[in-house]
Every structure is written in structure tokens, then in C-alpha cells.
Simulated assay, not measured.
Amino acid sequence: MKQTVEEAAIESCVIDRSIYNDEYQPYYLDGFKDGAEWQAKQSPWISVKERLPGKNTGVFFTVEWKDSRKGYFVGLYYGNGQWESDNRMFLQDSPLYRITHYMPIPSFDEILEANRDVLERIKEKGD
């Protein structure tokens, strides 16, 4: 079962009473909700400058060529700067292009969980 933002905020208040008291509850809850809203708007793309995926990890990744074209690929990161998609290897240090961002491929269970509310609505409608 998914937890609402308000439920998570209240639970975090209970866990750490040192930063919370009844007088500040409305402010704390508002700040928690604002933080959750901000997080939800963040891009799922991760810069390769920030960090690389684990070895042998399936990912979506972006390639920017020197002539300003950009491509999006589904493939595997082998480690050591080697990316593969459809039997085509991309090397991180190529003079012709650069890998800029990646996004982990979610598992089937993660996709189901993220769309549970949609599935429940479909069930209720009987479609």
C-alpha cells in the first residue's frame, strides 16, 4: 500500500520528536509536503558526471554527437566506460560523441507499483 505524503510527514514527526512539537506541526507538515512535491518534479535522468550505473546494468542512455545530434538508447552499461545498444558499442571517451545521462530501467514490479492507482481505477470500471 502506498503511503500518502501527509501520512509520511506525520510518521517522520513521530520518529524524530527532537525536531517536532505540536506548536510547529503545521509548519513541519507544510515543509515536508513542499519537499515531496519538489522531489516529484526532479528528472529521473542521472548525469554520468554525477555517477555511473553499476556494472552490467540495463539502462536508458543519451548520446550527444559532436554535430549536435542527440540519440536515446536502451542498452547495457558494462563498466569501464562501455555502453552497448543493439550490438553497437559506445565508449565514454570517444572523440565523436559523448554519453551524457542515463536512467535505470525499472523492474516490472516497480512499474506495477508506480501505476497501481491506474490499475485499481481500471478494475473498478470493469474495463
Rank of each mutant, 00 (worst) to 15 (best):
Y97P: 00
K66A: 12
N56G: 03
L76D: 15
T57Q: 12
L91I: 07
K70G: 05
N56K: 09
S68C: 04
E110W: 05
L112E: 14
Y72T: 10
H101R: 01
S94R: 05
G81L: 01
E84I: 07
P106R: 07
G79H: 06
R98D: 01
L96I: 08
D109E: 08
P104Q: 06
K66L: 12
N87S: 06
W65H: 12
Y78A: 14
S68L: 13
W83L: 00
V63M: 05
T100Q: 06
V63E: 06
I99E: 07
K66T: 12
Y77E: 04
T57C: 13
Y72C: 10
Y72M: 14
E84M: 13
L52C: 12
I99Y: 14
E64C: 10
Q82V: 12
F73M: 10
E84A: 10
Y78T: 08
G58L: 13
Y97R: 04
Q92R: 07
N56Q: 06
K70Q: 11
D109R: 07
G54H: 02
L112K: 11
G58V: 12
L76S: 11
Y102D: 09
L91M: 09
S68M: 08
L112W: 08
S94W: 14
M103F: 03
G71E: 14
N80V: 04
H101S: 02
D86F: 00
R98S: 08
D109C: 11
G54N: 08
S107C: 10
F61L: 06
P106T: 13
V59T: 03
P95M: 08
Y77C: 07
F73N: 09
V63Y: 07
S85F: 02
F90P: 01
K66N: 08
L52T: 11
Y102S: 14
L112I: 09
Y97W: 10
L52D: 07
Q92N: 04
S68F: 11
E84G: 10
D67W: 11
Y102K: 11
T62A: 15
F108C: 09
N56E: 05
W83K: 01
Q82R: 09
G81Y: 01
G79S: 11
V74C: 07
P104D: 08
D86V: 00
F90L: 01
G75D: 06
E110L: 15
I105V: 15
E64G: 01
S94D: 05
R51G: 02
G75A: 13
D86T: 00
F73E: 14
R88I: 13
K66V: 12
D109G: 15
T57A: 13
W83Y: 03
S85T: 03
F90Y: 06
G81S: 00
R69V: 11
G71H: 14
W83Q: 02
R98T: 05
G75Y: 03
W83P: 00
V74R: 13
D109Y: 05
G81D: 00
E84D: 09
L76A: 15
G71F: 10
F61D: 03
Y97H: 13
D86C: 00
V74K: 15
S94A: 14
K70F: 14
D67H: 15
T62Y: 12
M89S: 06
P104K: 09
T100N: 04
Q92W: 03
G79R: 07
H101E: 03
F60Y: 04
V74F: 05
F90C: 01
N87M: 03
N56H: 05
M103N: 09
M103L: 15
N80D: 14
M103R: 10
Q82G: 02
S68N: 10
